[in-house]
Structure formats: structure tokens, C-alpha cells
């Protein structure tokens, strides 16, 4: 394993800083204007932003193209999310080399949701590699300058690879076994799926035990009741607490836009302040704020951790 540091994200981990990352979502459009605007608002608040790759298997702008454009036009460091669902190992390798060429410094290696769950359900799912073997491949490319078959790569890419963990998985022991596999494969940091319950998180950390790999805990302050409800109903392994859901539902009744915004912020700040206070006592190295399209919530939540 190399000790080289290629990205600001990795630098902050190594320096022991409490790390904050954000999330940007390219859409089904011929441009990435909106995520670019969001990235500008997040500058200075987070060290890097994940750029989603066909989230929930909805086919959107290429995450690699979006990562490059966002990074180039805003200076926001991007974490290029890369799914195995849509590419075989050759395409994955090409995209990793492409990412290196375009100056991308971080990749989050994901298996990805099954294509049948999204808006292109008749697509042939690929999954030639999985998240663990993708992590292994990227480490081999970066550290040894070789591909999976052992072929030499001239001027290997210089980037870091992270992986995901699901603390709320129905079978925690099997999930942790898989996370351990990612650690053995050389994952450089982990980012958890969204968690709302502190006891779910505690159980995960206990089951995982000690590790040198920094872990970012995923939180999702919802901008609307609909967003929170979607996570509760449709995202596997994520349960949203009923009290929080009810408070968010109540904001739907407020007609005045500004007052509604204030109330949504108040609900989120109240709920996540307690959550983040708890986070201080866990081994978490930071927090991934999956607040897509909701940049104004980042600063007040960050304050809790100061």
C-alpha cells in the first residue's frame, strides 16, 4: 500500500481533520449547469463532493464527464462515483484511466443498484466486477501500474479509491464480512449509506471493530418531506425515524415559502444536531452530507462539529 497523497480529501484524512464531503447529482440533461451551481455554493464548506453515477439506476449524464467539468469550472474536488452495474472490467479500466487523465483524484467504487430498479429496466445488467474487485483493480493500477491481467500501464493514474458500507443492512454480520473484504482489497476510506439511527451506527462500528481505514458517515438532511419519504420507502437498508418524518410532513402545510424553508431547516438542525453530537463519540473520521440541492444546511450542521 502506498502512502502517497493525491487528493485534498486524502490529505485531510491523513492530517486527522474532521472531514466533510458533499454530493452532487448530474441529471438527465445535456449539461451539468445545476451541479456546477451547487458546487460553487459548497466551496469552502466541504473538502470534496461525490458526483453520482446513475443513482438508483436512472441513466443520467456520465459521472466522469460531470466530475471533470465540475472540478474544472468550480475548483471543487470531485469524488467520481463508479458503478459496476453498467460496465465490464474493460470499460471500468478505461474509465479509471480516463479519470486519471482528466485529473480526477478520488473514485468511490460501487456495485450499483440493479438496472431493473431504475428508468431503463430492460438494460442488460453487467456486474462483471463487484465493488471489492473494482477496488482491487484500481489499487493494482495505481500502486503497481498494472491491470488485472498484469499488463503494464504507462504513467499509471494517481488517485484514491473509497468504498461503501451499509450499517443498516438486514444482515449486519454478512455486510461487515464484505466490508472487511474491501479493507483486505485495499480500500482507502469507507463511506456509509445514509444512517438516521445512532444505535444502528453503533452496532455497525462494534461489529466492524478497529480499523485504520477512515470512515465517513452518510447523513441525509432532506430538503422536502418527499425526499425523506423516498429514502424510507425505497432505499434498502435505510429507515427514517417516524418523528423526523412527521415533522417533515408537517412542513408541507406551510404556505409561505420562506417560512417553510425556515421550518425545514429547523427540523433538520434539531434532528441532526443530536445525531452529530453522538457522532463525536464514534470512530467516524467525518461526515458525508448527502444533501443534494440543499447546500444551505451544510454550514449550520458543520458548526455542531466544531
Amino acid at each position: 500500500m502506498t502512502d502517497e497523497v493525491y487528493s485534498d480529501l486524502m490529505r485531510e484524512f491523513k492530517e486527522g481533520k474532521y472531514v466533510f464531503t458533499g454530493e452532487l447529482e448530474p441529471e438527465k440533461a445535456g449539461n451539468v449547469n445545476e451541479p456546477i451551481e451547487m458546487a460553487k455554493e459548497l466551496l469552502g464548506l466541504v473538502v470534496a463532493c461525490n458526483v453520482t453515477d446513475n443513482p438508483q439506476s436512472f441513466a443520467y449524464v456520465s459521472s466522469l464527464a460531470a466530475s471533470y467539468k465540475i472540478q474544472k469550472e468550480t475548483g471543487m474536488e470531485c469524488v467520481y462515483q463508479l458503478r459496476c452495474s453498467d460496465r465490464n472490467r474493460m470499460a471500468l479500466l478505461s474509465d479509471v484511466l480516463g479519470a486519471g487523465t482528466l485529473g480526477i483524484k478520488n473514485i468511490l467504487a460501487l456495485a450499483g443498484d440493479h438496472v431493473s430498479l431504475g428508468d431503463t429496466p430492460d438494460a442488460k445488467p453487467v456486474f462483471d466486477l463487484d465493488s471489492t474487485t473494482l477496488i482491487h483493480m484500481i489499487r493494482k493500477m495505481v500502486d503497481e501500474g498494472k491491470d488485472l491481467g498484469g499488463n503494464e500501464i504507462a504513467d499509471p493514474p494517481k488517485l484514491h479509491v473509497g468504498g461503501a458500507a451499509a450499517p443498516g443492512a438486514a444482515h449486519l454480520k454478512a455486510e461487515v464480512g464484505k466490508v472487511q473484504r474491501k479493507i483486505n482489497a485495499g480500500v482507502e476510506y469507507l463511506q456509509t449509506q445514509v444512517v438516521y439511527y445512532t444505535d444502528v451506527l453503533d452496532k455497525f462500528f462494534n461489529e466492524l471493530g478497529e480499523t485504520d481505514v477512515p470512515i465517513l458517515v452518510g447523513i441525509f438532511p432532506a430538503r422536502t418531506f418527499g425526499q425523506a419519504d423516498f429514502f424510507d420507502k425505497y432505499v434498502a437498508g435505510v429507515d427514517v425515524p417516524p418523528d423526523y418524518l412527521e415533522s417533515m410532513r408537517a412542513t408541507k402545510q406551510i404556505k409561505d415559502k420562506e417560512k417553510k424553508k425556515e421550518e425545514v431547516d429547523r427540523v433538520n438542525i434539531e434532528f441532526f444536531t443530536k445525531f452529530l453530537e453522538h457522532l463525536k463519540g464514534t470512530p467516524a473520521a467525518g461526515c458525508h452530507m448527502m444533501a443534494v440541492g440543499y447546500p444551505r444546511i451544510i454550514a449550520p450542521l458543520k458548526k455542531v462539529m466544531e
Binding site: S85, A111, D113, H114, P125, F127, D130, S131, T132, T133, A164, A165, A166, A169, H171, A174, E175, K178, R181, Q193, A236, G237
Partner: peptide, 10 residues
């Protein structure tokens, strides 16, 4: 998903 390394997060 036909994963050689699972389970997935779902």
C-alpha cells in the same frame, strides 16, 4: 447481481 463478492448494500 451475480456478484462474486457480496452481499450488496441492498
Amino acid at each position: 447481481k451475480g456478484l462474486m463478492n457480496g452481499p450488496c448494500g441492498g
